[in-house]
């Protein structure tokens, strides 16, 4: 009989990075003889179990690495995430996956790419950005066109992956625009929601692809404004967050108009989103 899909496998916490005041990035590795490496693609997610506290979905926040390590970034918002923030290096948690779809990687080739992220919404886009910038898997940076990344946070201290974002700025043909809602003394950059950066976009709206992730209000307003700039519905993709308990299209929490965000998504084109009545 097939493996019970609900059964997690143990993974060890290899390292913990304090990303922001309320977010930690966990570097994990599957434990055990098999040392099974997760073969996952950008945009997919996994279920994290903390026995006694339950289970919740998290997107992979990094590309797969050769040694089988992978990352998740966890913001402290509820019962489970609070408990996760108390974990230490070498602690064991349960993981299962990968689940969900990936972004249309083939369709992206040779195209200009626009990434729009709000707050912790950068995490699901990070593996995709890393994929574009990576030289692994027979691809390299030249296979893609220009890249522009717009990343907005509430405050400067809320920005994820600070060091890596600096490196992205140095990639060829790449622009990174950062903005914050509430600036402080440390900040001399742009202020406001991600949409305030849109006038700076240099990409050709008719051919570029757009990838968004962030709070639902942000996704809603960003799509509205990006469409006004002439970007095409079918080229806009958003990674959606939904409450879910299984990841495999059974528990029903993420069900919407006949689709399961966990198995049919979590990444949808705007054309699909409209069909599902999700405009946020």
């Amino acid at each position: 009989m097939k493996l019970n899909e609900y059964l997690p496998v143990p993974a060890a916490i290899k390292d913990i990075v304090d990303e922001t005041p309320d977010t930690k990035t966990f570097i994990l590795q599957i434990k055990g003889r098999s040392n099974r490496v997760f073969k996952y693609k950008p945009g997919q997610f996994l279920m994290i179990s903390l026995p006694g506290y339950g289970e919740a979905p998290f997107t992979f926040a990094s590309s797969p690495s050769k040694d089988g390590k992978f990352q998740i970034s966890v913001r402290r918002v509820g019962f489970l995430t609070n408990a996760m923030h108390k974990l230490k290096e070498k602690d064991i948690i349960g993981v299962r996956g990968p689940y969900g779809n990936t972004f249309p990687l083939d369709k992206m080739e040779k195209k200009d790419l626009l990434f729009i992220a709000g707050g912790c919404g950068i995490a699901p886009l990070r593996p995709l950005i890393q994929h574009v910038f990576s030289t692994r898997g027979g691809k390299n940076r030249k296979d893609y066109g220009k890249v522009e990344i717009i990343y907005g946070c509430r405050m400067p201290k809320d920005r994820f992956y600070k060091k890596e974002i600096k490196e992205w700025m140095d990639e060829p043909d790449t622009k990174v625009y950062l903005t914050v809602d509430e600036p402080d003394q440390t900040w001399d950059g742009a202020c406001g929601v991600v949409c305030v950066m849109f006038p700076r976009i240099k990409l050709n709206p008719k051919t570029s692809m757009v990838f968004l992730c962030g709070p639902s209000v942000m996704i809603k307003s960003a799509i509205r404004d990006i469409l006004k700039l002439g970007f095409r519905e079918q080229n806009i993709y958003a990674s959606l967050e939904r409450y879910m308990k299984c990841g495999i299209g059974k528990c029903g929490h993420c069900y919407i108009k006949g689709k399961y965000v966990c198995t049919d998504g979590p990444n949808f084109s705007y054309t699909q989103m409209k069909k599902l009545g999700i405009t946020s």
Partner: peptide, 20 residues
């Protein structure tokens, strides 16, 4: 549809699924 809940005491227990 269902949800899950853990019932643990000490280092062991069960994961329940229940109607939701």
């Amino acid at each position: 549809c269902f949800s899950i809940a853990d019932r643990v005491s000490g280092d062991s227990g069960i994961r329940l699924r229940y109607c939701d």
